[in-house]
Amino acid sequence: NLRWTSEAKTKLKNIPFFARSQAKARIEQLARQAEQDIVTPELVEQARLEFG
């Protein structure tokens, strides 16, 4: 299971509600691909840039 830093959680809250669950799934996918067990603000930002 993935842990989220408080900064990453804050960044996730800045994503519009309607896109948040999809973004969260993508962020967690990116973390797993990078073999990380902690979601960082950088991963959230990477996903945000993908979504535009």
Rank of each mutant, 00 (worst) to 15 (best):
E35Q: 14
F51T: 06
L49T: 08
Q29L: 09
I38P: 08
N1A: 12
Q29W: 09
R3N: 07
I38L: 11
R3W: 10
I15K: 02
P41D: 06
E7L: 07
T5P: 02
D37T: 13
A23N: 02
Q33M: 13
G52V: 15
R20A: 03
N1Q: 13
A8Y: 00
Q46P: 01
P41Q: 07
W4N: 01
N14K: 14
I38W: 12
L12Y: 06
Q33K: 09
E35S: 12
G52T: 14
R3D: 06
A25E: 10
P41M: 08
R26L: 11
Q46L: 13
Q22I: 12
F18H: 13
L49S: 08
N1E: 14
K9H: 08
E45T: 05
E35L: 13
E7D: 09
K9I: 14
A19H: 13
Q22V: 12
E42V: 05
Q33G: 06
L2A: 03
V39I: 12
A25L: 11
V39T: 00
S21K: 12
L12A: 02
T10A: 15
V39G: 00
R48I: 15
Q29F: 10
K11I: 12
R26G: 02
W4S: 01
P41E: 12
I15A: 03
I38H: 06
K9T: 11
N1W: 08
F17R: 15
V39F: 00
L2Q: 02
F17K: 15
S21R: 12
T5H: 04
F18A: 07
S21M: 12
A34S: 12
R48P: 02
S21V: 11
F18R: 07
L30A: 04
T10V: 12
A34F: 13
K11H: 11
F51A: 06
F51K: 05
F18N: 07
A31N: 00
V39H: 00
R32H: 07
T10G: 09
T10M: 14
P41G: 12
A31W: 00
V44H: 00
S6Q: 14
Q29R: 08
P16N: 05
R32Y: 07
E28M: 03
E28T: 04
A47D: 05
E45A: 08
G52C: 15
T40K: 03
A31E: 01
E50L: 10
A8I: 01
E7A: 12
Q36L: 14
A19M: 13
K13N: 14
R32V: 08
S6R: 13
E7P: 03
L49M: 10
K9W: 14
E7V: 05
W4P: 00
T5C: 04
V39E: 00
K24F: 07
A31H: 00
P41H: 06
A31P: 00
A34D: 04
L30I: 08
E50T: 08
R48D: 04
R32I: 11
K13E: 13
T40A: 02
K24T: 06
R26D: 04
Q46M: 13
Q22Y: 10
A47R: 02
S6F: 09
N14S: 11
S6L: 11
E28K: 03
N14I: 07
K13D: 13
V44K: 00
E35M: 14
L49Q: 11
Q46I: 13
W4C: 01
L30F: 08
P41F: 05
L12W: 08
D37G: 09
Q46C: 07
A23H: 07
I27M: 02
T10P: 00
A8V: 01
I15S: 02
L49A: 10
Q29I: 08
L49P: 04
S6P: 14
T40C: 03
K24L: 10
A19E: 14
R3I: 13
E50M: 11
K24W: 04
L49R: 13
S21F: 07
Q33Y: 09
Q36C: 10
F18S: 06
L30S: 02
A47S: 05
N14E: 15
R20F: 04
E7R: 07
P16M: 02
P41L: 11
I27L: 02
V39W: 00
K13F: 11
Q36F: 09
K9V: 14
E45M: 10
T10W: 09
L30T: 02
E50G: 06
W4V: 00
E35A: 13
S21N: 12
T5W: 01
E28Y: 02
Q29E: 12
R32T: 05
E28V: 05
K9R: 10
T40M: 04
R26K: 06
V44C: 03
Q22S: 10
T40R: 04
A19D: 14
L12S: 01
G52D: 12
N1K: 13
I27K: 00
L43Y: 05
P16H: 06
A25Y: 07
Q36T: 14
E50P: 05
E35T: 06
G52M: 15
V44G: 00
F17H: 15
R32L: 10
W4T: 00
F18L: 08
E28C: 03
P16I: 04
Q36G: 04
N14M: 12
F51L: 13
N1T: 11
Q46N: 05
G52R: 13
E7W: 03
V44E: 00
T10H: 12
L43I: 09
V44I: 06
Q22N: 09
K13V: 06
P41N: 05
N14V: 06
P16C: 09
L30W: 08
R20C: 09
Q36S: 12
A25G: 05
R32A: 06
Q36E: 07
S6C: 10
R26F: 13
F18T: 05
E45R: 06
L49C: 08
S6I: 10
Q46A: 11
E7Q: 08
R26C: 12
T5K: 02
L12P: 01
R20L: 07
P16T: 02
R26Q: 06
K24E: 06
S6G: 07
R3S: 08
E50A: 07
R20N: 03
K9F: 11
L43N: 03
D37S: 13
A47E: 05
R32E: 05
E50D: 07
I15W: 14
F51G: 06
L2H: 02
R20W: 04
E50I: 11
K11T: 07
A34E: 06
R26W: 12
V44P: 00
I38K: 04
N14R: 10
T5S: 10
E45S: 05
S6K: 14
T10K: 15
A19W: 15
Q33P: 00
E42P: 03
E50V: 08
P16G: 04
W4I: 00
Q36V: 14
T40S: 04
K13C: 14
Q36N: 06
E42C: 04
K13P: 02
N14T: 13
W4A: 00
T40V: 03
K24A: 08
A8K: 00
R3Y: 13
T5M: 07
E28W: 01
E45K: 05
K11S: 11
E7M: 06
E35V: 06
R26E: 05
K11P: 01
K9Q: 10
A34Q: 12
E50S: 08
D37H: 13
E7C: 06
A23D: 01
Q22W: 13
E35N: 15
L12I: 05
R3M: 11
V44D: 00
E50N: 06
L43D: 02
E7Y: 03
D37W: 13
V44W: 03
E42Q: 09
T10S: 13
I38A: 04
A47C: 08
